[in-house]
Design a protein around this nucleic acid. Structure first.
Length: 422
DNA sequence: TCTGGGGTCCTAGGACCC
DNA sequence: TCTGGGGTCCTAGGACCC
């Protein structure tokens, strides 16, 4: 039997905060979104205190802190770096790996025949990662991706403390799926579970028993794949060579509501600059830039959403062109008098920079479509460690209206934040 | 007072082609 | 009097993921 494994870091962001702070062991930890708005990660202890995922921080702050809970603003430099270390270890252990998210990876265990050997391998992986990086992981092993998700779910509670669970024989799968609510299945979100509940389908087992043709007709090919995967039929392959991105988004909410175009412009410029860096890092060029702005969806009285795209006559990756397109779009959609609470920029319509289709009719060398690869390389190089070169339209350093008040040091990516010992 | 960010895939429907 | 059929491409919107 061919087996797959899902390696899933436990409460990843909270665990990262603990790596250089052993004093936080067994203490409740929460990590907040940008602007310290919502809870986006919780340690086991914080979950036990009843802190829900996604809950606004201000609603739980007082009670949580009073009970001795610890809190951090998000520190993606740290999480990203520790993630890389975990993935590197896994990469060295198997032939094929798909890094699925910052804290998860699928492994191809085709070199292992017996479930018992797979289980041992899982324990070895887990111990190694814990020893080398200090991040606890759990591992689910099964014949399909969807079932590894189930196995990983089971590993949380029923792995005899090993953090590894292997789900391979039919009776065992049936038994587990009967106890698994349908909304816990990978690929079944809020809407689908509601619709399925209405059809009398409540457990993963109920779903697995449904007629495939009916699922295909009434729902979609996506749900069909999920059902087949629950039955042990692999439909979703491990993708080990990552496809190039199809779009790049940079967006933020901001605390102070912005009503003034002159305050919004430098913010959009910041997003445009960041998006440009990402685009060049991906080695891509884009021919469309879109800007969106919106008021708070919780503000019932005064709502406005604006969205506009700007097309370039040929693919570009020069930040100055992105800035120009973004600025024009912003001018088109902005309406005064609305307290904007969120804004963002989206780059799309990518093409590979080595084969560029130029426009036949439009002048591409005009002032407004700047394109200077060398200049961008120099700026990216200077800014790679810490931003040193700013564009005139950006917010000056440190004055952005987006706040993070409780961020931990960048222990592993910044010399000045290197942990010290006495 | 305060409510995240960044992606992917699929489908339906419109525009257009012969 | 009567007005087809088959196909592609693109986009917006929905649903899902972490």
């Amino acid at each position: 039997m061919k087996l797959l494994a899902l390696v899933d870091c436990d409460n990843f962001y909270a665990s990262c905060e603990r790596v250089f702070r052993p004093d936080l062991k067994r203490k409740p930890i929460v990590v907040l979104s940008n602007n310290d708005g919502c809870v986006i990660a919780r340690s086991k202890e914080a979950k036990a205190m009843g802190i829900k995922m996604g809950i606004p921080w201000f609603q739980v702050k007082t009670a949580y802190l009073a009970q001795g809970g610890k809190v951090f603003s998000s520190n993606f430099a740290l999480y990203g770096d520790l993630s890389k270390r975990v993935m590197n270890i896994l990469d060295g252990m198997v032939k094929k790996i798909e890094v699925y998210s910052i804290d998860e990876a699928f492994l191809d265990l085709r070199h292992i025949q017996q479930p018992s050997q797979a289980h041992e391998f899982g324990i070895y992986c887990r111990n190694t990662i814990h020893q080398w990086v200090g991040i606890p992981v759990r591992i689910g092993i099964a014949p399909t991706k969807t079932l590894t998700k189930v196995a990983s779910h089971v590993a949380k509670n029923k792995s005899n403390g090993t953090g590894v669970y292997c789900l391979s024989n039919k009776e065992q799968i049936t038994h587990i799926l009967k106890t698994l609510p349908i909304e816990e299945v990978w690929g079944i979100g809020r809407r689908l579970s509601q619709q399925l509940n209405q059809l009398g389908t409540y457990s993963a087992y109920d779903l697995m028993q449904m007629d495939i043709r009916f699922i295909r007709k009434k729902f979609s090919v996506v749900l069909e794949r999920t059902v087949r995967e629950l039955r042990g039929e692999p439909c979703i392959q491990i993708e080990d060579n990552v496809d190039p991105k199809k779009q790049i988004v940079v967006s933020r909410s901001f605390r102070g509501k912005i009503e003034n175009l002159n305050l919004l412009k430098p913010l959009i410029s910041n997003f445009a600059v960041r998006a440009g860096e990402k685009l060049r890092h991906e080695k891509q060029k884009c021919s469309q830039v879109s800007v969106f702005i919106s008021t708070s969806r919780f503000n019932k009285k005064l709502q406005h959403r604006g969205y506009h795209s700007f097309q370039f006559p040929c693919p570009i990756d020069d930040t100055r062109s992105i800035l120009m397109g973004a600025n024009r779009s912003l001018n088109t959609i902005f309406r005064s008098g609305y307290p904007y609470a969120k804004a963002g920029i989206l780059l799309s319509h990518f093409s590979n920079p080595t084969c560029i289709q130029r426009s036949l009719f439009e002048a591409t060398d005009q002032e407004s479509f700047k394109q200077d690869t060398n200049l961008m390389q120099v700026i990216d190089g200077l800014n790679s460690y810490q931003t040193q070169i700013y564009y005139a339209s950006q917010y000056p350093a440190g004055s952005s209206p987006i706040q993070k008040k409780m961020v931990s040091p960048k222990y592993t990516t910044n010399w000045w934040d290197l942990p010290t010992t006495k």
